[in-house]
Amino acid sequence: MQNVERYIDRIIEIADLTRKDEKRVRSELESHMQELLNAGEKSGLTESEVMNMIEKEFGHPEELGKMIARARGKFRTYLKKEARKLPISIVVALVIAFAVQAVAFEAFKVTTDAVSPVVPKSSRVLVNKLASNFETNDVIVFRSGTRAMAGIIKEIDGDRNGVIVSRKNQEDTFVPRDKMIGKAFFLYSCSL
Protein backbone atom coordinates (compact mmCIF):
# COMPACT_ATOMS: atom_id res chain seq x y z
CA MET A 1 0.00 0.00 0.00
CA GLN A 2 2.95 2.30 0.68
CA ASN A 3 4.11 2.01 -2.90
CA VAL A 4 0.68 2.94 -4.13
CA GLU A 5 0.65 6.00 -1.87
CA ARG A 6 3.98 7.14 -3.21
CA TYR A 7 2.86 6.54 -6.75
CA ILE A 8 -0.27 8.65 -6.25
CA ASP A 9 1.66 11.37 -4.41
CA ARG A 10 3.90 11.74 -7.43
CA ILE A 11 0.93 12.00 -9.80
CA ILE A 12 -0.74 14.61 -7.61
CA GLU A 13 2.48 16.57 -7.29
CA ILE A 14 2.87 16.81 -11.06
CA ALA A 15 -0.80 17.54 -11.67
CA ASP A 16 -0.65 20.59 -9.37
CA LEU A 17 -4.41 20.92 -8.93
CA THR A 18 -6.53 23.14 -6.74
CA ARG A 19 -7.05 21.73 -3.29
CA LYS A 20 -10.59 20.56 -3.97
CA ASP A 21 -9.66 18.81 -7.20
CA GLU A 22 -6.61 17.31 -5.58
CA LYS A 23 -8.67 15.70 -2.85
CA ARG A 24 -11.09 14.22 -5.31
CA VAL A 25 -8.50 12.93 -7.76
CA ARG A 26 -6.50 11.40 -4.94
CA SER A 27 -9.45 9.55 -3.44
CA GLU A 28 -10.57 8.36 -6.85
CA LEU A 29 -7.15 7.03 -7.82
CA GLU A 30 -6.68 5.48 -4.38
CA SER A 31 -9.91 3.55 -4.51
CA HIS A 32 -9.22 2.40 -8.06
CA MET A 33 -5.82 1.05 -7.11
CA GLN A 34 -7.17 -0.52 -3.97
CA GLU A 35 -9.63 -2.45 -6.13
CA LEU A 36 -6.76 -3.57 -8.33
CA LEU A 37 -4.81 -4.69 -5.27
CA ASN A 38 -7.81 -6.64 -3.98
CA ALA A 39 -8.37 -8.24 -7.36
CA GLY A 40 -4.70 -9.16 -7.51
CA GLU A 41 -4.82 -10.68 -4.06
CA LYS A 42 -7.74 -12.85 -5.06
CA SER A 43 -5.82 -14.24 -7.98
CA GLY A 44 -2.82 -14.89 -5.74
CA LEU A 45 -0.50 -12.09 -6.81
CA THR A 46 1.88 -10.39 -4.38
CA GLU A 47 1.65 -6.69 -3.76
CA SER A 48 4.79 -5.91 -5.72
CA GLU A 49 3.47 -7.91 -8.65
CA VAL A 50 0.27 -5.91 -8.57
CA MET A 51 2.30 -2.73 -8.24
CA ASN A 52 4.21 -3.65 -11.37
CA MET A 53 0.94 -4.27 -13.11
CA ILE A 54 -0.39 -0.91 -11.97
CA GLU A 55 2.67 0.92 -13.21
CA LYS A 56 2.43 -0.87 -16.51
CA GLU A 57 -1.24 -0.11 -16.92
CA PHE A 58 -1.29 3.41 -15.55
CA GLY A 59 2.03 4.41 -17.02
CA HIS A 60 4.60 6.75 -15.54
CA PRO A 61 3.25 8.90 -12.72
CA GLU A 62 4.79 11.98 -14.36
CA GLU A 63 2.95 11.33 -17.60
CA LEU A 64 -0.33 10.62 -15.89
CA GLY A 65 0.04 13.69 -13.70
CA LYS A 66 0.58 15.84 -16.76
CA MET A 67 -2.41 14.35 -18.52
CA ILE A 68 -4.64 14.95 -15.51
CA ALA A 69 -3.34 18.51 -15.25
CA ARG A 70 -4.24 19.10 -18.88
CA ALA A 71 -7.64 17.45 -18.56
CA ARG A 72 -8.66 19.43 -15.52
CA GLY A 73 -7.15 22.59 -16.94
CA LYS A 74 -3.90 23.30 -15.22
CA PHE A 75 -3.63 26.74 -16.70
CA ARG A 76 -7.02 27.65 -15.36
CA THR A 77 -6.23 26.41 -11.90
CA TYR A 78 -2.92 28.27 -12.02
CA LEU A 79 -4.69 31.46 -13.01
CA LYS A 80 -7.28 30.89 -10.32
CA LYS A 81 -4.60 30.49 -7.70
CA GLU A 82 -2.87 33.64 -8.89
CA ALA A 83 -6.12 35.56 -9.14
CA ARG A 84 -6.90 34.72 -5.55
CA LYS A 85 -3.54 36.11 -4.48
CA LEU A 86 -3.75 39.25 -6.60
CA PRO A 87 -5.94 41.46 -4.37
CA ILE A 88 -3.70 40.67 -1.40
CA SER A 89 -0.60 41.60 -3.40
CA ILE A 90 -2.18 44.86 -4.51
CA VAL A 91 -3.22 45.79 -0.98
CA VAL A 92 0.20 44.92 0.43
CA ALA A 93 1.90 46.94 -2.30
CA LEU A 94 -0.33 49.96 -1.66
CA VAL A 95 0.20 49.79 2.09
CA ILE A 96 3.97 49.62 1.65
CA ALA A 97 3.90 52.45 -0.90
CA PHE A 98 1.86 54.74 1.37
CA ALA A 99 3.91 53.87 4.40
CA VAL A 100 7.15 54.69 2.59
CA GLN A 101 5.64 57.88 1.27
CA ALA A 102 4.40 58.91 4.71
CA VAL A 103 7.57 58.34 6.68
CA ALA A 104 10.54 58.02 4.37
CA PHE A 105 10.51 59.25 0.82
CA GLU A 106 8.13 61.35 -1.19
CA ALA A 107 8.50 62.84 -4.65
CA PHE A 108 7.67 66.48 -5.35
CA LYS A 109 7.55 68.42 -8.53
CA VAL A 110 9.12 71.85 -8.42
CA THR A 111 6.90 74.13 -10.45
CA THR A 112 8.69 77.44 -10.00
CA ASP A 113 12.11 78.91 -10.58
CA ALA A 114 12.54 79.65 -6.90
CA VAL A 115 15.46 77.27 -6.42
CA SER A 116 17.06 77.49 -9.84
CA PRO A 117 19.68 76.92 -10.99
CA VAL A 118 20.21 74.21 -8.37
CA VAL A 119 16.77 72.81 -9.07
CA PRO A 120 15.43 74.10 -12.37
CA LYS A 121 11.75 74.69 -12.99
CA SER A 122 9.56 71.60 -13.50
CA SER A 123 12.09 69.11 -12.24
CA ARG A 124 11.31 66.48 -9.69
CA VAL A 125 12.91 65.97 -6.33
CA LEU A 126 12.81 62.99 -4.06
CA VAL A 127 12.63 64.11 -0.47
CA ASN A 128 14.17 62.19 2.38
CA LYS A 129 11.86 62.75 5.33
CA LEU A 130 14.15 60.90 7.70
CA ALA A 131 16.98 63.39 7.28
CA SER A 132 17.90 65.11 10.51
CA ASN A 133 21.19 66.86 9.80
CA PHE A 134 20.58 69.99 7.82
CA GLU A 135 23.36 72.20 6.56
CA THR A 136 23.52 75.43 4.69
CA ASN A 137 23.03 75.12 0.94
CA ASP A 138 20.90 72.00 1.33
CA VAL A 139 17.77 71.99 -0.77
CA ILE A 140 14.76 71.31 1.39
CA VAL A 141 11.02 71.02 0.91
CA PHE A 142 8.81 72.62 3.51
CA ARG A 143 5.18 73.26 4.17
CA SER A 144 3.80 76.72 3.71
CA GLY A 145 0.12 76.82 4.42
CA THR A 146 -1.35 73.92 2.45
CA ARG A 147 1.37 73.92 -0.18
CA ALA A 148 4.79 72.36 -0.25
CA MET A 149 7.64 74.60 -1.35
CA ALA A 150 11.29 74.10 -2.13
CA GLY A 151 14.07 76.31 -0.91
CA ILE A 152 17.76 76.49 -0.13
CA ILE A 153 18.94 76.71 3.46
CA LYS A 154 20.78 79.97 3.96
CA GLU A 155 21.33 79.65 7.64
CA ILE A 156 20.62 77.25 10.45
CA ASP A 157 18.65 79.00 13.17
CA GLY A 158 19.27 76.88 16.23
CA ASP A 159 17.75 79.37 18.64
CA ARG A 160 14.31 79.17 17.08
CA ASN A 161 14.75 75.50 16.07
CA GLY A 162 14.46 76.02 12.36
CA VAL A 163 16.23 77.35 9.32
CA ILE A 164 16.31 80.48 7.24
CA VAL A 165 15.33 79.59 3.70
CA SER A 166 16.08 81.60 0.64
CA ARG A 167 14.06 81.52 -2.52
CA LYS A 168 14.89 83.38 -5.70
CA ASN A 169 13.40 86.84 -5.95
CA GLN A 170 11.74 86.45 -2.58
CA GLU A 171 12.58 87.54 0.90
CA ASP A 172 14.30 85.02 3.11
CA THR A 173 11.84 83.29 5.38
CA PHE A 174 12.12 81.44 8.62
CA VAL A 175 10.87 77.84 8.52
CA PRO A 176 10.43 76.08 11.86
CA ARG A 177 11.64 72.46 12.14
CA ASP A 178 8.15 70.99 12.23
CA LYS A 179 7.24 72.64 8.91
CA MET A 180 10.24 71.13 7.18
CA ILE A 181 9.28 68.03 5.22
CA GLY A 182 12.77 66.86 4.46
CA LYS A 183 15.94 67.12 2.47
CA ALA A 184 15.76 66.86 -1.30
CA PHE A 185 18.53 64.47 -2.12
CA PHE A 186 17.84 63.28 -5.59
CA LEU A 187 17.06 65.59 -8.41
CA TYR A 188 16.25 65.16 -12.02
CA SER A 189 14.81 67.40 -14.58
CA CYS A 190 11.95 66.23 -16.70
CA SER A 191 11.91 69.19 -19.07
CA LEU A 192 14.65 68.91 -21.61
Binding site: V25, E28, G59, L64, M67, I68, R70, A71, R72
Partner: peptide
Protein backbone atom coordinates in the same frame (compact mmCIF):
# COMPACT_ATOMS: atom_id res chain seq x y z
CA UNK B 1 -8.93 -1.62 -24.21
CA UNK B 2 -7.57 -2.85 -20.89
CA UNK B 3 -4.35 -0.88 -21.25
CA UNK B 4 -6.27 2.35 -21.25
CA UNK B 5 -6.53 2.61 -17.46
CA UNK B 6 -3.93 5.33 -17.16
CA UNK B 7 -5.71 7.39 -19.74
CA UNK B 8 -9.13 6.69 -18.25
CA UNK B 9 -9.04 9.36 -15.55
CA UNK B 10 -7.61 12.14 -17.69
CA UNK B 11 -10.28 11.19 -20.21
CA UNK B 12 -13.05 11.27 -17.61
CA UNK B 13 -11.88 14.65 -16.32
CA UNK B 14 -11.72 16.19 -19.74
CA UNK B 15 -15.15 14.83 -20.66
CA UNK B 16 -16.45 16.26 -17.42
CA UNK B 17 -14.91 19.62 -18.15
Amino acid sequence: FSLGQGTLYPLLYSLEK
